[in-house]
Each structure stands twice: as C-alpha cells, then as structure tokens.
C-alpha cells in the first residue's frame, strides 16, 4: 500500500531535498557525542534521536532536580522525585522515542583523562554543557582529531551559537581567553526555556548539515541574540587568532591531564563539584554508614545524599562529590576535607 511508504518514520525529512534518501542513509550511519544532558543537551538529544542519527552517545555528571523541569525537556516529575542521573533518565525517554537506533547514556564527568574513550570515533561533538572549562576540552579534542565542535550557550533570554570546523574556521580559543570568568550565570540571571530550544535547534541544524555531507551550507558566523530585548548579531568568523594554542600552534592545552582534582562551581546551582584526579570506585553503602553518623542520608541505586548542617553532599560511585547549598569553593573544599577527606 502506497500509504505505508508515505507514513514511514523519516518520510518528511527525506522529502526535504537537501537531506533526501541519501542524507537519511548517512544519518543512520553517523555517530555523535553530546556533552551535557541539561537544558541544551536534552533538546539536542531529542533532535538527533528523532532525526535517526544511528548512534547517539551522551555524557552527564548530574541528576534531575525540580528546578530542571522548567526547561530540560526530556525530564518529568518522576525523574526529579527519583533523583535519576540525567544520562539515565534521558536514555529511558529517548529509547521510547526511537528504538531503531543506538542510544548510549554515560553517567560521568568529561575530563582530559577520559575524553579519548568517551569521544572515540564520533563524527562530531555537540555542546550541551554549562561551563567554558569543558568547552575548551571539547574544542581542543575536536581540533586535534579533525572533527567539528558545535558550540551553544544560553543565559537569561540570550543565546550564542557557532560551529567550529578544523581546517575551515577559527576555534573557540580564538574567540575567548580561557580562565576568565563569564559574568552572568543562570544563578544570577536565570534562563527561559525558549532561548534554550532555539540555540540547541541551531546547533542541531548545523549538525544535520555536516552529517548529511552538506558542509557548504554550514553557517560560518557566531550567532548572538537576545530573545526578550530583540537584538541579534551574526558575526563573521574569518581569521584564526595569531598564535592560537589550539588551532595554530596545535598544543591543545585543555587535553593535558592535571594531577590535582578538579573543582567546579556549577552554573545556577549553588553547587560546587569536586572530582578526584584518579577515578574511584566507591561503595556507597560504606559511605552511607560513615555519613549517617553526622547527618540525614539517603541512598538511591545511583548516588548517596547526605544533609550535613545547612549543606547537602551528593556522592557518586566514581568518587565525584557535589557540595550543594554553597558557591564558595573554599567552604566546599573544607566540608569535603572534613567529611570525605582530600
């Protein structure tokens, strides 16, 4: 019956001439990595999975909380009630949407130590993170391995998007100096969901162009706009920065594995994350026994929560700890040192 063909899953996408049957086949043979499964990440994953990208891999270090529901479109109240890791909750939802492709969620933090393994053989990297530290890591990896890195960022009603392609465009490091604060965060300025959707949808579009082999259609600008106040810029990216450590000198500084553990203040979360330099394999039941002496603790299959004083510690099996209720890195370190040990 002719009807069956017309009703096939990707028919409307194949009718779009620049994709067509050939492009659809290419999508099915593609592999992408999405780093971060928060606001941008959930929209990106939704697009890649519905479009029929053959292998969609993602990594996220966080779990679902009620304040995520306003904008993180794959999560519902149950996910928040169960404090599911975002990579797990997203994988469940996405598999209900498309069972014909490979969907692979990883609970963890992308670091210089694991990026070779996590980004192994992907065709491009989609940015769903909330910090420039991880962005420089993705950027340096992408330029070292000759794959595109698709940047997106949002705060308040503002968004930015650019696609960095080794050998064709400048890189993120040409535009922004590492190590400088970024001013506004979701914690000070908030964020509205539509700007998230729009930026991630621009990222998804550029990814589709690359995956179906239409590199010439990729927008070679940094798009920057404010959805509420109504300004918009499309800034041309022409020359790499003279002496850029990533795309000119090819030193890729973000890929150097540092000895000390990493400490990050998470965007908009009143949370400090402490990652050990060497991956641990923690027995959370042991930690439960230890910490229930000093506070109220709760163990789920994926993490351990401990309320101590006015703070909450969240422990993961890989040795990561979130200190919630403060943005003061020193205080977080102190609490960590006291209850977990440096």
């Amino acid at each position: 019956m002719k009807q069956e063909l017309k009703q096939s899953r990707y028919s409307r996408q194949m009718l779009f001439t620049p994709i067509g049957e050939e492009g659809q086949k290419r999508l099915g043979q593609s592999r992408v990595l999405i780093v971060g499964m928060g606001a941008l990440g959930t929209v990106l994953a939704n697009h890649m999975v519905r479009a029929g990208v053959g292998h969609v891999r993602f990594i996220d270090r966080d779990f679902v909380e009620p304040s995520n529901l306003q904008r993180q479109m794959l999560f519902d109240e149950q996910d928040a009630a169960q404090s599911l890791p975002k990579a797990i909750a997203a994988e469940r939802k996405l598999k209900q949407i498309n069972s014909e492709i490979h969907i692979e969620g990883i609970v963890g933090d992308l670091t210089a130590a694991n990026i070779d393994q996590v980004a192994h053989e992907v065709d491009l990297i989609l940015d769903g993170t909330d910090n420039f530290q991880t962005r420089f890591l993705m950027n340096d990896y992408a330029f070292k391995h000759g794959i595109p890195y698709v940047y997106g960022g949002v705060v308040a009603a503002r968004g930015m998007q650019a696609t960095f392609i080794p050998g064709e465009t400048p890189c993120l490091r040409c535009l922004i100096d590492e190590g400088q604060g970024t001013g506004e965060t979701c914690d000070t300025s908030g964020v509205i969901a539509p700007v998230v959707d729009i930026i991630a949808s621009y990222q998804a579009t550029e990814a589709l162009k690359l995956l179906v082999g239409k590199k010439e259609a990729v927008r070679s600008t940094l798009l920057s706009f404010d959805l509420w106040h109504g300004f918009s810029h499309d800034i041309k990216l022409r020359q790499p920065k003279t002496g850029c450590l990533t795309c000119q000198k090819k030193e890729y500084p973000a890929l150097e594995i540092k000895e000390e553990g990493q400490i990050t203040s998470l965007c908009g979360r009143e949370t400090v994350q402490i990652t050990p330099s060497v991956k641990r394999d923690w027995d959370l039941k042991e930690w439960k026994k230890r910490l229930e002496k000093v506070g109220k603790v709760e163990l789920t299959p994926f993490l351990l929560r401990a309320d101590i004083d006015d703070l909450r510690l969240v422990l993961f099996t890989d040795g990561r700890v979130l200190v919630q209720g403060t943005e003061d890195v020193t205080r977080a370190k102190a609490v960590y040192a006291r209850y977990i040990g440096m």
Binding site: D130, N131, V155, M160, I176, I235, G268
Partner: peptide
C-alpha cells in the same frame, strides 16, 4: 564596534 559578553550557560 559591538561589545558582546560570551554566554556560558546551558
């Protein structure tokens, strides 16, 4: 000249 702060959230 447009002066634009980079956007880091996500």
């Amino acid at each position: 000249v447009a002066v634009i702060p980079p956007v880091s959230g996500g």
